[in-house]
Deep mutational scan, measured.
Amino acid sequence: MSRVPSPPPPAEMSSGPVAESWCYTQIKVVKFSYMWTINNFSFCREEMGEVIKSSTFSSGANDKLKWCLRVNPKGLDEESKDYLSLYLLLVSCPKSEVRAKFKFSILNAKGEETKAMESQRAYRFVQGKDWGFKKFIRRDFLLDEANGLLPDDKLTLFCEVSVVQDSVNISGQNTMNMVKVPECRLADELGGLWENSRFTDCCLCVAGQEFQAHKAILAARSPVFSAMFEHEMEESKKNRVEINDVEPEVFKEMMCFIYTGKAPNLDKMADDLLAAADKYALERLKVMCEDALCSNLSVENAAEILILADLHSADQLKTQAVDFINYHASDVLETSGWKSMVVSHPHLVAEAYRSLASAQCPFLGPPRKRLKQS
């Protein structure tokens, strides 16, 4: 649940008159999402009104509101027999009622949201009550392989729920002597030191190019640089560091992050930047690179990204790559990247197969709970 924001200063709310007192009302909304995959969808019983329910879910471990999704594969009634019906059901509720908006969509073979439908307002739910769409999607369109909505005969539904909580009022009075504290510009100011090479005390040599930097900042941000300058190493004695395995453009992006906490060109060089972040123990930059690479996972590059993640101990990226390969196994196994990995990294192939087997055979063990970014 997000923290209630402070109200904007009255002088910034309007260029008009300023009242002596004010009130700011925040209506709290808890948002969460749920993904439900139905394997072997074409084998569902086709009687009209037949119901399939998901397991229950909530916004978190401490949330007492429990929900589930309900599907009628062949419609709810005679009117909707040519459609799939989809509903959000409130299973248990400690209150007399709650209000919530919802959005349903289908994830296609690429994991993209399609055929989205959402409620136009927050509906009133009581325990045992459901709301949804009797005519969510035509069955003939859903079952047509050309539309790519049932890869490997799996129907994957994605649901986003927004639950309306209580409202909170914050009130106060205006004073004539309003003090406005300026925003912190530390990142910009440190970035200026790097860009202008002011007050530098060490030189970093990268592929024949020299960059002036500040030992204190490098040591504070990177345990690797800290070790170089702290001990009686040649880098500490000469205040000069030779860097041979990072390209200059990648190095500059890494230094921008060290000084400012930002990497504006990360998406263009996420793979190389991940390697640099791993070498210099820049954990936050490493996770930022993992996130960017996750966003660009595809059938063509899944094997290469899995190898990269394994090489640099990028655990979150590795998990996402394995899950992606499992979901698109029939396509990924035909790529040149996968065939190369079979020869060069057989242990990763074995890991992917083990994960695929456990996903398809849940009876082999208890269900695993899916539970950071600093």
Rank of each mutant, 00 (worst) to 15 (best):
I258S: 05
N296V: 09
G191A: 02
D153R: 07
Y327G: 04
S171M: 04
M48L: 06
C256D: 05
S358R: 06
F57V: 03
T200K: 01
V168L: 02
C294M: 13
W131T: 00
P17I: 07
Q173K: 04
M255I: 03
E112L: 11
M13I: 03
E46I: 04
K252L: 05
C93P: 06
K81D: 13
N39T: 07
G148H: 04
V181K: 09
K339R: 06
V342W: 08
S85A: 13
F225T: 01
L107V: 15
V168A: 01
L364G: 15
S222A: 10
P182R: 01
L88E: 00
T25E: 00
H328Y: 07
Q320T: 07
S80R: 04
T335N: 04
Q209R: 08
L364R: 15
P151N: 02
M35T: 04
S119K: 00
P8K: 10
H347P: 03
D153E: 12
L150M: 04
S96R: 11
K115N: 03
E112T: 09
E235F: 08
F363P: 15
C184A: 03
H231L: 14
V181M: 05
W67R: 00
V163D: 04
S336C: 04
L86T: 07
D63Q: 01
A19R: 11
C289S: 10
T56L: 01
E112I: 13
R138V: 12
E247P: 06
S336W: 12
N326A: 08
T319S: 09
K369I: 01
P5V: 09
R221K: 14
S344Y: 04
G111Q: 15
D267V: 03
S295T: 12
H312N: 04
K28A: 12
I38A: 08
T37R: 11
A350F: 09
M1E: 00
V4M: 10
W36T: 02
L308A: 10
L149V: 02
R138N: 08
S92M: 10
F43Y: 07
Y353D: 00
K95N: 11
I217R: 01
V163G: 07
S295H: 06
F158R: 09
D82F: 10
N72E: 14
E189Y: 05
S59V: 02
L186H: 07
K135M: 13
L157Q: 01
C93N: 07
Q373W: 15
R185T: 05
A292E: 11
M233E: 13
L273V: 02
G208L: 15
L90C: 08
Y83T: 14
P223K: 10
G148E: 04
T156M: 04
F32Y: 06
I38F: 05
L90I: 13
S55P: 01
S298T: 14
S96A: 05
